[in-house]
Design a binder for these strands. Structure first.
Lengths: 235, 235
DNA sequence: ACGATTTTGTTCTCGCGTTCACAAACTCTT
DNA sequence: AAGAGTTTGTGAACGCGAGAACAAAATCGT
């Protein structure tokens, strides 16, 4: 039917620069990495794009296209070598090197983040915990003790810290953010429910717990057909 | 139910628009809500789409289009009444009613979530904390005490719980998820680094802390020009 | 060795979301 | 009251990403 006839565009070939990985693809690479690790743990040595796609929860065509941005790591007729691909993705993301992370704001959330094992297992090393509350400074959390925010500059410089995590209240977030940037941190993960402005060269990502719940609530409301107020169910 | 003061003679609501709100728009409504609250706190009574857009960190055209899906709440030549719009968005999301939430897995993260004030302030009430570790059952966290996972069914039914938060290790996530679904929970927020499968009628959202860091690391690596990627092995 | 089979890498098409641009609608000034 | 000035709501163009489909490349069987 719609067989590609003789319409061969004589356009100049677009170079597949390794630089231009789509943002949507970048966001999925860690998911693939996790899926590959799971397969490897089960002693699976080779996996097809379909296997991987199922394991990662995506479409197999999408997965193949994503991987094609990184290079040609599969073997036609066979699939992907799990450990090899896993290493390639890890290298692409930058997980073959360690990253130093500072966490600012050691309240409940900062506490949890400091103890989160998922960071350390992936090459992220929490090198310092900072808080502006002097009463908290000196406290121990896991292996670390809480430092004063005033030590930020030295900690960042001496520890080659490039990633900062903000877990402060919203009111303090922008100030902390500015100080992180001034100290030389160029990637920030923000858990505070606030809009932060940063210079162009700084990357910032936001995780907002209450927004996620609100999105769920929206759909939940639709499902229950609750147009007005609370309806008292049966009983 | 107290109305937020009928303003300008109540017009008929545009109900056809309520059907198909794009997902991308839904995800921004909480952001607008927060921006409106911030303006309201500063005693701003009226705001143009441009004002709001700046406050929310988006493009003003996008904001206007988003709001247009909800109805016609602005006044041409004037802007939006801050409190009125805030109420409308809150109603649309479903925040004019309270939502009962259970948190499963009271480790570091679950602990932090249980104490997170951002939930309560937006109509989300944490009604129960559950853990499968019997040694933890009975412990107090804030106002609540930790219940056994076996009590899930009764808690969900008696408390009209529709939202569940999973903060367990990855290995336990699917089991906990299945039990939540079986108990009648139809919206799930998953913090465990695992892919969960749920029936169609259940909504699920995922928050993955380490993925966010990995995305930052990817861009950070590009910025520092570490093209070679391979440096001294970590041994 | 050669065809059948499997699976990748890529091209093409479609749909969604973002942004521009402008008519409609409201207020303010004279 | 009418024109000037604002600002909303929306139609239209554009770009990106998702998914289907297929040619190329590898293995396997005879």
């Amino acid at each position: 039917m719609t067989n590609a006839g003789g319409r061969k565009g004589g356009r100049a070939r677009v170079e597949r620069a390794e630089r231009g990985i789509p943002e949507a693809t970048v966001a999925r690479l860690p998911v693939y990495l996790r899926a590959l690790t799971a397969l490897s743990d089960r002693d699976v040595t080779t996996a097809s794009s379909e296997d991987l796609a199922v394991s990662a929860g995506v479409n197999s065509a999408k997965l193949r296209k994503d991987l094609s941005y990184l290079g040609t790591y599969g073997t036609r007729g066979v699939g992907y070598d799990v450990d090899y691909l896993r290493y390639q993705i890890a290298r692409e993301i930058g997980l073959t090197q360690d990253w130093s992370v500072v966490i600012v704001g050691i309240g409940n959330l900062g506490h949890a983040l400091a103890n989160y094992s998922g960071f350390a297992s992936r090459g992220f090393r929490v090198t310092a915990l900072l808080d502006s509350d002097e009463a908290r400074v000196g406290e121990s959390v896991g292996d670390l003790h809480i430092s004063s925010l005033d030590d930020l500059d030295e900690i960042v410089r001496s520890g080659s810290v490039s990633i900062g995590v903000i877990a402060t209240p919203a009111a303090a977030a922008q100030i902390v953010c500015d100080r992180l940037v001034a100290a030389g941190v160029s990637s920030i993960l923000n858990f505070a429910p606030a809009l932060l402005s940063v210079p162009d060269h700084v990357d910032i990502r936001k995780v907002d717990l209450s927004i996620e719940l609100q999105i769920l609530a929206f759909h939940e409301q639709r499902k229950t057909g609750a147009l007005t107020g609370i309806k008292a169910g049966t009983g």
